[in-house]
Design a protein around this nucleic acid. Structure first.
Lengths: 160, 160
DNA sequence: TCAAAATAAATCGCGCGCGATTAAATCGCA
DNA sequence: TGCGATTTAATCGCGCGCGATTTATTTTGA
């Protein structure tokens, strides 16, 4: 078990600044990996009638049913200007219902319909398919997930 | 130097499938990290008059001037339906010019203007700013970049 | 030679993300 | 109690990503 030598040399970043290079950028790696995930998910989610962001909302609701738009936004790091039309499309597709809160009429509670709960059965095979597409061990994926989530949290902290 | 214990237990994925969970998903980590990058870049790129995808195209051109739409697409993993309007906006902003190829008139060559080359000077400080926002060592970032790019390549290979 | 196939970019429509703003309900506090 | 401040969601406009299609050019092979 010897350490594999890094195939590319690590770039230096002097204080004066450097030329930003595409394939040396972590941001571009994350950006293009996001595109790649979308392309893997597309043929898997199309038969379910979901887009990828809609799938994320459904995941949040399968985990905890009946959540407010604001709560979903905190989980997904999205605002109501993104979530409201997305959730309306999920409602139009029959997966969720939207209802104003009784105690606080500013809030809108999003709940799964029977059809929405049923969809979880068909979705349960998705993590396995992604695991195969990623072509990495569960351990590797889990470590990478932690690193990327940590990066996200650092970046979020940097803009307050 | 002892190994830090993983704060979260690694999930099992039995063959029958499991409930997909948001914060255990590598895809969501990448998705939300992408959102976070965008939010860090916004206040940095706004003064330059660039969006984040436009900045990526400029990076590609700063590295190699005069590239075809197809070449840029291969570098950035984007198609002409995304790049054409984006590049037209860069042209309208005065950063690039577009010209049909002389030998093959189907191709459109994108070249930097003087203004576009000038912009590199103001952009050279960006990697440093991002390094600070990420709050990680250069070594950590470089390793993570490699892992995420490797994941992207595996995912791309999985959809041909 | 020349028409069919292939290739490159552009066009169109839709669903995000998000900054800015608006509308409505609740809260706070004099 | 009442009125301004705050909170919550919704609305609007713009720039991506991308599937599907179109247009223009080049390549091909009978």
């Amino acid at each position: 078990m010897s350490r594999k030598p890094d195939p590319k040399p690590m770039p230096k970043i002097p204080a004066g600044g450097i030329q930003p290079l595409l394939d040396q950028s972590l941001c571009f790696a994350v950006y293009s990996a996001g595109l790649a995930f979308n392309r893997v998910y597309k043929p898997i989610l199309d038969p379910l009638g979901l887009t990828y962001p809609q799938y994320l909302v459904m995941m949040a609701l399968w985990e905890t049913d009946e959540q407010g738009v604001g709560e979903l936004g905190e989980l997904l790091f999205l605002e109501s200007n993104t979530l409201t039309p997305l959730i309306k499309r999920l409602e139009a597709a029959g997966f969720v219902t939207r209802a104003r809160g009784a105690e606080d009429e500013r809030q809108v509670h999003v709940s799964l319909t029977g059809k929405g709960r049923e969809l979880l059965k068909e979705a349960s095979c998705i993590p396995g398919k992604l695991l195969e597409a990623a072509g990495m061990s569960v351990e590797q994926i889990w470590r990478l997930r932690g690193s990327v989530a940590g990066l996200r949290d650092k970046l979020r902290a940097a803009v307050e």
